[in-house]
């Protein structure tokens, strides 16, 4: 209570109460039972989420003899990188024994153009929907969004036929097209909502200044939209990289993306199971989206929140 004595005296009722200072117990800061429960629960949950990653890493660094001894949770006694080398360069799928590297490069060749094409289309769509509405534009958009909820299985066969007719079935181009189509609802929504959130007066000012559809898009909107392009890229890169269904339906074994090849390696019934190689392969496949996730951090969260309707 020493401190209160040095306070300037304020006359009147309120003043004398002020001088007395706080009378209750000082709130405990750090180790209250509430905090123990909160951090304890969060810690336990974090453990559940982290264990699989830990198991993947330690398994991939063990030799097969050590794995056969037993405990998947124990750290490796002798660290070996051989499983990683094997997974990357030698693992077999069917007759091919050149490892996951082939799938990796296929995935790169699928993901990069798919991301670019789908974002280019979706950003222009979103811009048109936000700023240049025309009769019926909202109807198309509604169909597009509802379409995002339709199970892919419903639409996949007609697309197979259409691609076969165009001669694109089984090619990377066909798959890129498929990714651009199915990425469109969520990406368009993302861009539309972003462009709608930009001040409308900016768009009006540009029109008064005489800029047209493309001029406003390239000279006003694009420079202002870098964050949403990054969010969209994160979303599309992880989404397309992680795809399995389209990969298995629309490509042939020599153009299989990484996820399909990984599944074939691990779940192949021939030969002896090499769990360490399997886990190294799994980690390698998960590495790209994980790196994107850890590097992008908050933007990833923003992306999934914005694109939450995707499901």
């Amino acid at each position: 209570m020493d401190k209160s004595l040095t306070m300037p005296t304020i006359s009147g009722q309120a003043g004398s109460r002020l001088e007395a200072g706080p009378q209750g117990k000082r709130p405990r800061k750090t180790l209250s039972s509430r905090n123990i429960i909160v951090y304890g629960a969060l810690g336990l949950a974090a453990l559940y989420y982290l264990v699989p990653l830990y198991v993947m890493v330690v398994t991939s660094l063990k030799g097969m003899p050590e794995i056969r001894l037993g405990n998947i949770f124990s750290p490796p006694m002798e660290i070996t990188f051989e499983p990683w080398v094997k997974a990357w360069a030698q693992a077999c799928t069917g007759l091919n024994c050149d490892g996951l590297s082939r799938g990796f490069w296929n995935s790169v060749r699928i993901t990069v153009p798919s991301v670019i094409v789908s974002i280019a289309i979706a950003s222009v769509n979103g811009y048109a929907l936000a700023n240049w509405r025309f009769k019926g534009s909202e109807i198309f958009f509604t169909i597009l969004i509802v379409g995002a909820f339709i199970p892919y299985q419903v639409m996949i066969y007609p697309i197979v036929i259409a691609l076969r007719e165009m001669g694109l079935y089984g090619t990377l181009y066909g798959l890129i097209l498929v990714h651009s189509i199915f990425g469109m609802p969520i990406q368009t929504l993302l861009f539309r909502n972003y462009f709608v959130s930009l001040p409308e007066e900016l768009f009006k000012a540009a029109r008064i200044d005489g800029a047209g559809f493309w001029q406003i898009y390239f000279r006003i909107m694009l420079p202002m939209s870098l964050p949403i392009f990054v969010v969209s890229m994160i979303l599309q890169t992880t989404g397309i990289w992680n795809d399995f269904l389209f990969g298995v339906v629309f490509t042939r074994p020599d153009t299989y993306p990484m996820t399909v090849q990984l599944n074939n390696i691990v779940n192949s019934v021939q030969g002896v199971k090499e769990y360490n190689v399997n886990m190294a392969a799994t980690l390698l496949t998960g590495a790209v989206p994980l790196i994107v996730y850890f590097v992008s951090g908050r933007l990833f969260v923003r992306g999934i929140a914005a694109g939450a309707v995707k499901g």
Binding site: T238, F244, T259, L262, N263, T285, G286, Y293, F300
Partner: peptide, 8 residues
């Protein structure tokens, strides 16, 4: 984990 594919 949400960043990882269902396959992984």
């Amino acid at each position: 984990p949400f960043a990882l594919s269902f396959i992984v």
